[in-house]
């Protein structure tokens, strides 16, 4: 099995998210960075599949040079090959990002052979365009289904389960295929000390590739207007229980 996972470096905000004064980006001066959550699970899924079936996992990111941190993290939990497409300072819209990834995949497959499976996160935690994976799959002429929370790899096809409100929809895709994965498909492991050490030595390929802009232009980011709420304090101990139950009765959820 040759699996490719595409990941994105995103800030890890806490209780509030601030925007730079020019409105062009999230203020990250005091923030750490992480792998977008759905993609963290895509990495874990790929590693689990190759642990079961053999093969190797390549992780690709399109982003700033610092995204090396997310690639090394992926290596520390078991990924084999790391590829960075540095795009420092470029304003990437979804079409441009997809075109860059498509071209990069073409190069990787020409050099190392085709990928049996390509995994994306369902959507990125930050810009959340809901389309890059679909555009790449279409450009590569491969089927894709999003929202996947279960994958079974069979000899000539892949069974993928999409979570819906009360259960799953089951899809069956021919190989090679592309899937958009959602958090919850697995519980990502933490890196071991051995994994961390190995990840520092893992070879990372950096190859600048660019593409034309698409048709969407981001003008500015801003925070939604906050409705200031007066919180009604019902107490500071279990003595508040009657007041809480009064409230539940009042709004009709206690029959």
């Amino acid at each position: 099995m040759r699996i490719l996972v595409c990941v994105k470096r995103v800030p890890a905000p806490g209780a509030k998210i601030n925007v730079t004064t020019d409105g062009q980006a999230v203020e990250t001066a005091h923030l750490g960075f992480t792998t977008s959550p759905h993609e963290e699970c895509a990495v874990e899924e790929a590693v689990q599949i190759t642990e079961r079936m053999g093969g190797e996992v390549t992780v690709l990111t399109v982003g700033p040079a610092e995204a090396e941190e997310q690639l090394r993290y992926a290596a520390s939990v078991g990924c084999h090959n790391l590829v960075l497409v540095p795009t420092d300072g470029l304003a990437l819209d979804p079409q441009r990002t997809a075109a860059i990834i498509t071209e990069t995949v073409g190069g990787l497959e020409a050099d190392g052979g085709g990928f049996d499976l390509i995994l994306f996160g369902n959507e990125s935690a930050d810009s959340g365009g809901f389309q890059v994976g679909v555009r790449v799959a279409h450009a590569l002429g491969r089927p894709i289904v999003n929202g996947i929370k279960g994958i079974d790899v069979e000899d000539d096809h892949i069974v993928a389960r999409r979570a819906v409100d009360a259960g799953f929809e089951v899809y069956e895709l021919p190989r090679p295929a592309v899937l958009g994965v959602k958090e919850g498909i697995n519980l990502p492991r933490y890196p071991t000390m051995k994994g961390r050490l190995a990840s520092k030595k893992a070879e990372m390929v950096s190859q600048p590739i660019d593409a034309e802009n698409g048709g969407q232009v981001m003008v500015r980011l801003h925070r939604p207007a906050e409705t200031v709420k007066e919180t009604v304090m019902l107490g500071d101990s279990e003595e508040a229980a009657p007041a809480i139950v009064d409230l539940l009765e009042e709004i009709g959820v206690l029959q």
């Binding site: 998210i17 935690a125 930050d126 810009s127 981001m218 500015r220 980011l221 801003h222 925070r223 939604p224």
Partner: peptide
């Protein structure tokens, strides 16, 4: 953006 924590024009 950010699931609704941020807006983008």
């Amino acid at each position: 953006q950010w699931g609704g924590s941020l807006l983008e024009d």
